[in-house]
């Protein structure tokens, strides 16, 4: 795979699908006379932050993807071994159209957008990442969610011959994550397929990963092969391993510390040896969009 430098310009990163999208949007805006929509869409849409994204190097050389090893540099070194084409995703449980879908078929008709999101790891570091992907809600609508479904469960591929970390029993493979259905349907919740307008690098969870920007990074499960609609809160990997430290909700919350470290502040990766820490924002700065999902809940209890 080609290595990208820090010198990428925005012209390089606009994904083709997104670019075409904008053209349609602009045409529509012209017809409706909505001049506000016609401004240059640097940050694609209302969901993106205008903060400067981390470099491609930052985002692809510092990863937690335990399927490829425990060190942050292991995924970049070992994820090349993963075959991501062909790729199929099994969708089952309480859905109208269950089945094992080829990734291409699954994505057909879904709009790929650019979303520049804050990403906050539970380990108190953070990045700004320009993802490309589609809303999970759109996918769920496509396969048809049955009224009885309350949760969405996800599973990462289990293929120890390509994922060397899975040859040890450090985690209870396959990696599992889950969301409440209303969280899954929130327009912020993204299924990412790309980064900086390129295909998702393997170490970032190719070819299909979840991105839930108001939750700690471990919720954003990578290399997804199964999506299950269910009426039970699904078991999730880190919660199974250390329930006191990692909750099902895992919302970014500066007021609720991890038992072993503070969550009040974070270090933005890429700032060098003398980088200052910055305060962590409630719901990672997405409170306006998601706080309502948790009204009445004690977030210190449901961490």
């Amino acid at each position: 795979m080609r290595r990208h430098s820090r010198r990428l310009t925005w012209a390089d990163v606009t994904p083709e699908a997104d670019f075409l999208n904008r053209r349609t949007l602009l045409a529509g805006a012209g017809v409706l006379g909505l001049s506000a929509l016609a401004r240059p869409l640097h940050a694609a849409g209302a969901f993106s932050t205008d903060e400067t994204p981390n470099s491609f190097e930052d985002i692809t050389q510092y990863n937690n993807f335990y399927e490829f090893g425990w060190d942050k540099t292991d995924p970049a070194r070992h994820a090349e071994a993963l075959t991501t084409d062909p790729w199929s995703v099994k969708i089952d449980g309480m859905v109208e159209r269950p089945g094992t879908y080829d990734l291409g078929d699954l994505m057909a008709g879904l709009t790929i957008e650019e979303r520049i999101y804050r990403f906050r790891c539970v380990e108190a570091w953070s990045m700004i990442i320009p993802w490309n992907g589609f809303e999970l809600g759109a996918l769920l609508n496509k396969v048809g969610v049955q009224p009885s479904a309350k949760y969405v469960a996800f599973e990462t591929l289990f293929r120890p011959e390509e994922m060397r970390g899975q040859r040890t029993s450090a985690l209870d493979w396959p990696y599992r994550e889950g969301l409440r259905l209303d969280e899954a349907m929130n327009p912020l919740t993204l299924m990412a397929t790309g980064l900086y307008g390129k295909s998702l690098p393997n170490q970032n969870g190719a070819p299909l990963r979840l991105v839930v920007p108001w939750k700690y990074g471990f919720k954003s499960i990578k290399s997804i092969v199964r999506i299950t609609l269910t009426d039970q809160e699904p078991p999730t990997t880190w919660n199974m391993l250390q329930p006191r430290e990692y909750g099902f909700y895992a919302n970014v919350n500066p007021q609720v510390d991890h038992p072993r470290w503070s969550q009040a502040s974070e270090r933005r990766v890429g700032g060098g040896l003398f980088a200052k820490k910055q305060p962590t924002l409630m719901f990672n700065g997405y409170a306006d969009d998601v706080a309502g999902l948790y009204s009445g809940m004690d977030l210190a209890k449901f961490y």
Partner: peptide, 13 residues
């Protein structure tokens, strides 16, 4: 090395 960005993207850690 840390000062010169040769210890990865999170040199403090």
């Amino acid at each position: 090395k840390a000062l010169n960005g040769e210890m990865g993207v999170n040199p403090i850690e």
